Amino acid sequence: MISSQVKPPQTKAALFGVRLRTLRKQRGWSQKELAERVYVTQSRIAQLERGYGARPSAELTHALETVLEADGQLAELWPYVYDGSPRWSRRFFDLAAKAVAIREYVSHTVPGLLQTEAYARAVLGVGLEHPDLLHERVSLRLARQARLEKPDAPKLCLILDQAVLLHTVGGEDAMREQLLALRAACDRHSLRVLPFGSREHAMLGGSVVILTMSDGTEVVYSEGADHGRLLEDPALVAAYTGAFEQLHARSYGEARSARLITEAAARFTRTRSRRRAVTRTQSRQRAGRHVRRRPGA
C-alpha cells in the first residue's frame, strides 16, 4: 500500500518552491499570471516551484514577496537558497569547520578568519552587483570566525606576505581598523610576516590553507582570485606542507612580525591625520576667500 503522506522538502530550494506555490495558489493565480506580475517567464516560476535551475536573485525574491504579500516567508529562505559561497569552496568550508589545526599562507589579503567587517565587505564586494548577496557573504564570513572563540578552536598558524600590510583595502580607516585587529590576533595565534625580498617559492601568487583533521589526516586548499581546488592526495599534501614549512622558516619571527603590523597601523593613522589636517586647512582657506569677497567688505 502506497502511503498518502506527503514527504517534506529535502532542500532549502525545494522548501522555497513549496512556499512559492502555496502563496501563488492562495492568490488564485496561475504560474503565467504570477510570472507576468514579476516580469519573468512562466518557465522561470515553474523552475522555482520545483526547486531546480537557476536560483532566485535578490530582486526577484523581493518582487515575489511584494506581489504575493508573503510577509518574509520567501525572504527568510533566500540566503540559504542563493548560496553566497562559490561551489568549489563548499567542501573546504565543511572541513575547515571541523579542523583541529589550520595553517595558511596568504599573498594579497588578510585571511578570512581574521578579517574585520569593513575589510571583508571591501574584499567580497569586488565585482558583486547585488547588495543583498554581499551582505550574505559578509555574514557567512563573520559567522565562521565565531569558532575561534570556542573551547574547540583550531590551532591557527598564519603567514602573511608583507604586501598584505600595505594594500589599502576598503579605505584608510578600514585598513587601520583591520591592522589593529590583526595585531591583537598576534597575542592569540601564531602569525608571521614573509618579508619583501623573499625569493620565488611554491606558493607565489596565491593562497594556501592546510587543514589538519582530528584523525591526523591533512588536506590542502589552494585558491586564486576566481578558482579553488581541494587536494587530498597524500603526495600533493606533503609537497604543500613542505613548502609551507620552508616559508615559515624564511618569515620574520612572531615578535618582529607583530611590530611590523603595529608600524603599518601607525602609518595609516598618520596618513589619516594628515588628510584631516589638509581638509581643515582647505576649509579655512575657502572660508577666508568667502569673507574677502563679501559685497561691501
Rank of each mutant, 00 (worst) to 15 (best):
S3L: 12
Q5L: 15
Q5N: 02
K7Q: 11
K7L: 14
P8G: 02
K12C: 14
K12T: 14
A14E: 09
L15A: 12
G17N: 00
G17E: 00
L23T: 11
L23P: 03
L23V: 11
R24P: 07
Q26T: 13
Q26C: 04
R27T: 12
K32Q: 07
K32W: 07
A35S: 00
E36Q: 03
E36V: 10
R37D: 09
R37W: 10
R37A: 02
Y39L: 15
Q42A: 09
R44N: 14
I45T: 01
A46L: 03
A46Y: 08
A46Q: 04
L48D: 01
L48W: 01
G53I: 14
R55M: 12
E59G: 01
L60M: 11
H62M: 07
V67L: 05
L68A: 05
L74F: 14
E76G: 09
Y80R: 13
Y80G: 02
V81L: 12
D83Q: 04
S85G: 08
R87L: 13
S89C: 10
S89Q: 12
S89V: 06
R91W: 04
F92M: 11
F93M: 01
L95T: 06
A96L: 11
A97S: 04
K98Q: 06
K98R: 15
A99N: 03
V100Y: 08
V100K: 13
E104G: 06
H108T: 06
T109E: 11
V110H: 04
V110Q: 06
V110T: 08
L113K: 11
Q115D: 05
T116Y: 07
Y119H: 09
Y119S: 02
V123L: 02
L124S: 05
H130D: 07
L134A: 04
L140H: 14
A143K: 13
Q145W: 08
E149W: 04
P151C: 08
A153M: 09
A153Y: 05
C157T: 12
L158R: 03
V164L: 05
H167R: 15
G171W: 13
D173I: 05
D173K: 12
A174H: 09
M175N: 01
M175H: 00
R176N: 01
C186G: 03
C186F: 01
D187E: 15
R188M: 10
P195N: 12
F196W: 13
S198V: 15
E200M: 14
H201S: 13
M203R: 00
M203D: 03
D215C: 01
T217S: 03
E218G: 00
V219S: 06
Y221C: 03
S222Y: 05
S222H: 04
G224V: 12
G224R: 10
D226M: 07
D226Q: 10
L230C: 01
L230G: 08
E232N: 07
D233T: 06
A238D: 05
A239K: 11
A239S: 07
A239R: 08
Y240I: 02
Y240D: 04
T241I: 01
G242F: 09
G242S: 13
F244V: 03
Q246W: 14
Q246C: 02
L247R: 09
R250Y: 14
S251T: 08
Y252K: 03
R256P: 03
S257L: 12
S257A: 07
R259V: 06
A264H: 07
A265V: 06
A265T: 10
A265F: 08
A265G: 00
R267L: 12
F268I: 02
T271K: 05
R272E: 00
A277H: 12
S283K: 15
A287W: 14
G288C: 13
H290T: 14
P295S: 08
P295Q: 04
